[in-house]
């Protein structure tokens, strides 16, 4: 399975792929990930490619990702060309507006922010199956707004084709987050898992 993880620098995108990578290590499943650290992290767009089970190179070819897992909807759309025709997009529902967009707003270059509906409409037009998750709400319910990424990892695990079982994924979550945040993250994972199961 090919997965694109994306979002805005600072949202904990690499942690998502690390959890799945850790689970692969536990199961002995082949995995290769391509990350970018550095400049892109200052509120910039961040993308991680992950090849689970098969796929040799660290970059998913255009049109071959099975899933895009996005912590921010604009980022899901930005990388839509990686998704295979009819692939799955799981996206957080909250937009993060870049200061540049806000500055264009006050300078009169645009007369409104881009809306979630506009973004999602284009994602749908691509032919993607779409699952929308209010990760902030679920993460807060779980006890920490910081766990939005783990909510989405739970959501990913719930997909029928996802090759790793839920128990192993939970162990990987526990091994990857700070000790004092384990409980909240497990709850966040479960809430994300349940949310997608209900949408299936």
């Amino acid at each position: 399975m090919n997965v694109i993880y994306c979002g805005v620098g600072g949202q904990g995108i690499v942690l998502m792929s690390n959890i799945v990578g850790e689970a692969c290590a536990r199961k002995g499943i082949h995995v290769v990930s391509g990350e970018l650290h550095g400049l892109s992290q200052r509120s910039g767009s961040v993308i991680v490619h992950q090849r689970i089970g098969e796929g040799l190179s660290p970059l998913i070819p255009y049109g071959e990702a099975d899933v895009i897992l996005a912590l921010e909807p604009m980022e899901a759309l930005r990388y839509i060309y990686f998704l295979k025709p009819g692939g799955t997009v799981i996206t957080n529902t909250r937009l993060i507006h870049h200061p540049y967009e806000t500055e264009n707003f006050v300078k009169g270059k645009i007369d409104k922010y881009i809306t979630y509906e506009e973004i999602v409409e284009n994602i749908r037009k691509s032919g993607a199956k779409l699952y929308e998750i209010d990760a902030l709400k679920l993460a807060e319910e779980a006890g920490t707004a910081l766990a939005q990424n783990v909510v989405l990892v739970g959501a990913l695990t719930a997909l029928p084709d996802f090759p790793i079982d839920k128990e192993t994924m939970l162990e990987a979550v526990k091994a990857s987050v700070p000790e004092k945040a384990v409980e909240a993250n497990v709850r966040a994972f479960e809430l994300g898992y349940k949310a997608v199961k209900e949408l299936l």
Binding site: G10, L39, R42, M74, L77, I80, H98, Y100, I119, K125
Partner: peptide, 13 residues
């Protein structure tokens, strides 16, 4: 379709 997403360059925190 993707180009609808406004650019998101790195910027000061």
């Amino acid at each position: 379709l993707a180009k609808l997403a406004p650019p998101r360059m790195p910027t000061f925190c």
